[in-house]
Design a protein around this nucleic acid. Structure first.
Lengths: 212, 212
DNA sequence: ACCGCTATTATACGATCGTATAACAATGGG
DNA sequence: CCCATTGTTATACGATCGTATAATAGCGGT
């Protein structure tokens, strides 16, 4: 009696992306409790069964969503670093600043990030993804630091400096995203630039805003 | 046929505390998914029905648990700063280092903290508590920085430095808690001390370990 | 134009969730 | 010593979760 709903066949790629994006939206909005297979499928415009056609299970979809999210974060900063004059200090400045302003420094992103953070405990695969993306981001930072060509600094020192600078950026990102109204305009960007500059012993230029 | 299990009547206070502690443990260990009414009651040594005898519902218990957790965190920070010789740099060092080693830098704590962080979205009361505790922590740090008596630094500069140092500490704490096996021994402590020292332009002494 | 393939839907199943309610028993007062 | 109180257990209920399986329909090949 009930009419079977019509549908269009689509590529595996687009379906997987739609499901991943739906999962990310729901996770950000309402946390893990809101991201059920039914709600995810509903938002993606499909029925729940399709999830298991493209993913081994809900955990598999969650992992894919986490990887997509983290890769997107670093991709934004890498893109910001790449676009612009090829000066070592300027590139580092752009990389830092892009992490301390929207769309990276965003309340929804923080909520999403914290939701995933809870999943890495006791889940070795999620933990591996976290480690990969963390090291990926830090390696970019370390390469930028090494490119500064500071006298008397070896590889070990560069690694330690990258860890410290990564800490500053992460911490400021977290605080700015959690309490946006507590910091004015580009305050956190400036603080971040000066802090990283102090740690590295260099003067970091303030990048021009390409989106005023 | 089934024997009814024996029990002892206990005070409301001890029961509530036992339930709150059980909820915190499970929440930290396995996230919200693991903190079910049944598992909480089981760990607290009671049966699930008793939860609704002392709390209006699971949400009520969860709120009580978070409140307890935040109170404990601030208590640890205050204690860590107070104990020790009354030297400005030494006090700052102890404050930093205590945040970058167990029991503060701990995977369970990070998991709990991220779970809490997620609740501040769209919840003004939780948001207010978060702001309160964040500013409380930062104000302590700012006071320690101001006590350094650095030449040529005004209040505005101290505020900015406190924000930056808070960022370093938070970021390193987060990374060390999330990936404990990626950092050896006191590596993060040393990095944290040098980073904060560089930002503030002072040399920070390495505190003696009181628990070898 | 038809047919096979499979993407997609529909339905069902067992587990577990939070909650409600009734039965029981430990404890203190008389 | 017994009774009333109520802390505590036991059981049940409806909802919803993730998953499994069968039925259907869109689409490309011929």
């Amino acid at each position: 009696m009930g009419e079977r709903r019509s549908y269009r066949r689509e590529s595996e790629e687009s379906r997987r992306e739609a499901l991943v994006l739906a999962a990310l939206e729901l996770l950000a909005e309402g946390g893990p409790a809101a991201a059920t297979v039914r709600s995810i499928a509903d938002r993606a415009g499909v029925t729940p069964g399709l999830i298991r056609h493209y993913f081994a299970g809900k955990d598999d979809l969650t992992r894919a969503a986490y990887r997509h999210f983290m890769d997107g974060m670093t991709a934004i900063s890498v893109a910001a670093m790449t676009a612009g004059p090829d000066d070592a200090r300027a590139r580092l400045s752009r990389f830092i600043v892009s992490s301390l302003r929207p769309p990276v420094m965003d309340a929804l992103r923080l909520s999403l990030w914290s939701a995933f953070l809870q999943l890495i405990r006791g889940n070795p695969e999620m933990r591996a993804i976290h480690r990969q993306t963390y090291h990926g981001y830090r390696d970019v930072l370390e390469a930028l630091i090494a490119a500064l060509d500071r006298p008397g600094t070896d590889a070990t020192r560069c690694r330690a400096d990258a860890i410290a600078c990564n800490g500053v950026i992460d911490g400021l990102w977290m605080e700015g995203a959690a309490l946006p109204e507590d910091f004015s305009g580009d305050q956190l960007e400036q603080i971040g630039l000066r802090a990283v500059g102090a740690i590295l012993g260099v003067e970091l230029p303030i990048p021009e805003r390409n989106q005023p």
